[in-house]
Amino acid sequence: MPSQKPRILHDYKDLFLSLIPLVLIAVVFAGLASQCSFAATGPTEGRIPHFDVAAALGSDARTLDFPIRNPELPADWTPNSGSRETITAAGGGPVSTVGYVTGAGTYMRLTQSSATEQQLSRFVLGSRYATGTVDVGGEKWAVYSQPTEETAWVTDLGGVRVLITGAGNDAAFRTLAGAVTAAQPLQP
């Protein structure tokens, strides 16, 4: 009499029982690699990555051909990211972007470029169009707003177009817009 049942008699219970050791092995390896954790009370807020915004924007001011501003933001705003790209279309140019996590935990992004407003907005926002304007500190900002997309504000500060976007509320947008317009361009 054979010691194993015929293959045709195998069912989902047999499949499930054969997968248990594989799942346990995967969990052990993930745990050893510190790639997973367990929290009985649910997810916890992670650490915000450190990003030296002063060094990044200082470098951009030295290497890019337009004025770069480093806004003075509230102490509970934490810079967490940055990048530099180039818009290659006509009317484009280099783009400097830094991101912040606000005190309320929302993400806001500041983009500065020598590109035209149209090229910058197409590069960052896609095919959206301005839906209105708002005045902050005497500066007029074009508002790009759609129900299913993040809001964005764009202004021209003479030689540089500034675009801010993010998940923040109106107060977060006004805080960032006011800080950018109040900031003096960094010296190269």
Score class of each variant (00 low, 15 high):
122 R>E: 10
166 G>S: 04
61 A>T: 02
86 T>G: 04
50 H>I: 15
127 S>M: 12
82 G>F: 07
73 L>C: 02
131 T>F: 09
174 R>C: 12
88 T>M: 14
46 G>T: 12
185 P>Q: 04
170 D>Y: 11
37 S>Y: 03
142 A>V: 03
15 L>H: 06
65 D>L: 13
38 F>L: 06
5 K>Y: 03
16 F>I: 08
61 A>Q: 02
11 D>E: 06
86 T>Q: 13
32 L>N: 09
110 L>H: 04
149 E>P: 00
125 L>E: 00
68 I>V: 13
81 S>Q: 11
175 T>C: 11
13 K>R: 12
83 S>W: 11
43 P>E: 10
149 E>H: 13
81 S>M: 12
41 T>L: 11
166 G>H: 04
38 F>V: 05
182 A>P: 06
170 D>P: 06
113 S>T: 10
24 L>I: 12
111 T>Y: 07
143 V>F: 01
81 S>L: 08
115 A>D: 01
20 I>P: 00
180 V>M: 12
27 V>K: 00
34 S>G: 09
70 N>F: 02
146 Q>W: 03
89 A>G: 07
114 S>P: 02
65 D>I: 10
138 G>T: 08
2 P>L: 03
26 A>N: 04
93 G>R: 07
114 S>A: 15
151 T>R: 15
163 L>A: 05
116 T>M: 04
153 W>T: 07
188 P>L: 02
15 L>T: 08
173 F>K: 05
166 G>L: 07
178 G>M: 08
165 T>G: 08
123 F>P: 01
68 I>P: 02
181 T>L: 12
111 T>H: 08
146 Q>K: 09
137 G>S: 12
158 G>V: 11
148 T>A: 09
76 D>R: 10
60 D>Y: 06
117 E>I: 05
60 D>A: 14
19 L>W: 05
128 R>P: 00
6 P>M: 05
158 G>M: 06
86 T>K: 15
42 G>T: 09
22 L>D: 03
80 N>Q: 09
79 P>R: 02
83 S>D: 13
40 A>C: 00
43 P>C: 09
165 T>F: 03
159 G>W: 03
